[in-house]
Structures are given as C-alpha cells and as structure tokens.
Amino acid sequence: MKNSILVNSVRFISLILAQVLIFNNIDFMGYINPYPYILFVLVFPFNANRSLYLVIAFLTGLTIDMFGNSGGIHAAASLVIAYIRPIVLRLTFGVSYEYNAIKLPNVTFYERLIYISSLVLIHHLVLFSLEVFNITNIIYILKKTLFTGIFTSILCLMFNILFSSRQE
C-alpha cells in the first residue's frame, strides 16, 4: 500500500513536470501539443476507491490548468475520462476486468492500444470543445482532436511500455 502511494506520487510529479516544461512547448506544426500527463489518470490502480480516483483526476487536470492558464478545461476533460474509465475497461478487456484480474503490464499490445487511444480521443474531444468554446468551429475542434490524439496516444503507449515492468 505504502509502495503504491509512493509510486503514484513520483509518477504524478514527473508527468506534470514533463508536461509543463517539455510537452507544452512542442507546438508541432504550429498547434499540436501532446498531453501525455493523462497517462497518470489511465494507469491509476484499477481497484482504487472510485470517489478518491475522481478527485485525484480532477486535481491532476487542475494542476495542468494552473500552469497553462486555461481555466478548468484540463480538469473537466480528466474528470470525464476518470468517470467513464470502468465502461471502457469493460468494453476492451471483457470479463477479466470484472474479476479484478487485469493488470495493464500483462495485457496484449492490441488491447493496450485500444484502451489508451479511445480514452485519449474522448479526453481531447472534451478538452478542445471547452478550449475553443464555439460550436461553429466544430471542424477545427475535430481536426485538432484527431491530430493531437494520435500524437498523445503514441507517446502514452511508448511511456507505458518503457516504464512498465512485466509482472508474472
């Protein structure tokens, strides 16, 4: 238990710092900034207390908002993916999730890809809708969601594979 708190705190601080100091300054092709900090929300222990998880996801987003002066858009987007994560888990991993038997380091690459990219796309859709805040720019929102989503998904997958030790 102690170990889990320590691991998650270290992950939180390092992902926030990486996001704020490196990934917020990429501006690939003028407007594409990946948001790999949501990996923290994605790999948060699956059996954790649900209410605690929602509050932590909200605070994660709010920290990014504080650094980026973006109001509450990251907080809202992180909260949404935290709330719908059980549904996505059930859809991607099927029954093994119901028995609490699932551990992210042990799943196949394909399942991991589906799980990460679907949540990333939902997160980015909420994020950019709130950022642009104008329904007439829907094409711009979708374009930004798609391109940034691909970028973020690749980064999240890379980090996830690099930093996860396979447990038998």
């Binding site: 909200f58 908002d65 504080m66 650094f67 109001g71 509450g72 909260l79 709130l130 805040f133």
Partner: peptide
C-alpha cells in the same frame, strides 16, 4: 459537482475581467 466546478473555471477564463482563482 466537480464537472460543474471546472465549467465555472472555464467560463471565467473566457471572460477576462472576472476574477480567476486558477492562474500561473
């Protein structure tokens, strides 16, 4: 509740003369 809270922050950030709690 948390979602409404973040929406309030977002709407505040879209009108600049409102006072903001979350800034850098």
């Amino acid at each position: 509740f948390l979602f409404c809270l973040s929406l309030v922050f977002t709407i505040q950030s879209h009108s600049y003369h409102k006072s903001k709690f979350i800034n850098s």
